[in-house]
Design a protein around this nucleic acid. Structure first.
Lengths: 179, 179
DNA sequence: GTCTATAGGCTGATAGAC
DNA sequence: GTCTATCAGCCTATAGAC
């Protein structure tokens, strides 16, 4: 039996935190309530996480890593199909949709984790992938509507089957880009 | 000289609150900081507003009223052009863009003000105006991307000239709808 | 690893003087 | 209308026993 790479309790804490955040929002999810849901006391959390900020950072990191990896991959390949790129982006946000929901429902958490600049960079890099390094305002708005829409649909239509949602969302986003 | 219909201090409080909320988010804008910015003490706020919730409600209400009025007007007129409807919606969000930004940066404030159901109703009513009473998932995603995009662009491109932004945003939203 | 107990600070809100 | 003083309640975080 392999030794678990991460503590099981830490994993349960993360899961409870994500649950509670989905229900009440980031700011409203206190360590007391998270601990209660796990069935331990608040100080016990501090054995697994140095601070509330570290816990949140650990929740967001997998999404951040995957988006960074995706963008690096897209930027290294010279030719792109817009639908392929947006599809890959949709898949990432969908895979991490609990975190995506958390970030979209309260973007201020990003600033608190010093990730505002990172996410702002994502927007510019995606615009560059779609329209080159100096997009016009018309192109910026289209990229904003398309990419923002991917996230919106990911977190809004949680009951729809994945394949159907993916197709419908990408159809809408590609129509926005005029492709 | 006409007596002012609303207290001047109350107006300064509202302005300071909106400023601070734009900078730090709703949850992070405390009454203490708002009072500080106005140049009065915290208890003095309570002479003008019964509670923090009442202050927030007063900020959001003008946007709520204008959207309700717009939707009622659109629903009462039998024939519609999509670009006209979206344009009218854009104008409302732009006119109240400080509040729009606040709501989009932290939608949970709506739930706290018991407005979540109201705003959810807006989404359904707009979808009905665009696609009839029972839109398919494909139509729902297109409406979501288009309408969400209007709000996103309103708060994101604050430096762009109004006319140019309006045209670019509506072009993108109408392309999303396939019109 | 988890507990009890507690420190220290911030919050929204109130009482009562001026 | 605004102030000082204060309250109760919540928060994050730590100390130290087991």
């Amino acid at each position: 039996m392999p030794r678990p790479r991460t503590s099981e309790t830490a994993e349960r804490i993360r899961a409870a935190a994500l649950e509670l955040i989905a229900e009440k929002g980031v700011q409203q999810a206190s360590l007391r309530e998270i601990a209660e849901r796990v069935g331990i006391t608040k100080p016990a959390l501090y054995y697994h996480f140095a601070s509330r900020e570290e816990l949140l950072r650990g929740l967001v990191q997998p999404l951040v890593d995957d988006v960074e990896e995706l963008l690096a991959r897209l930027e290294s390949a010279p030719s792109h199909d817009a639908r392929e790129m947006l599809g890959a982006y949709f898949d990432v946000t969908y895979r991490h949709r609990a975190i995506t929901k958390m970030v979209m429902q309260d973007p201020s958490v990003l600033a608190h984790l010093d990730l505002a600049a990172v996410v702002d960079g994502w927007r510019r890099r995606i615009q560059a992938l779609l329209f080159g390094p100096a997009p016009t305002l018309a192109q910026q708005t289209r990229a904003t509507v398309a990419v923002g829409g991917l996230g919106d649909c990911t977190v809004m239509f949680t009951d729809a089957p994945f394949d159907e949602l993916r197709r419908a969302t990408l159809d809408a986003a590609c129509a926005t880009l005029g492709r």
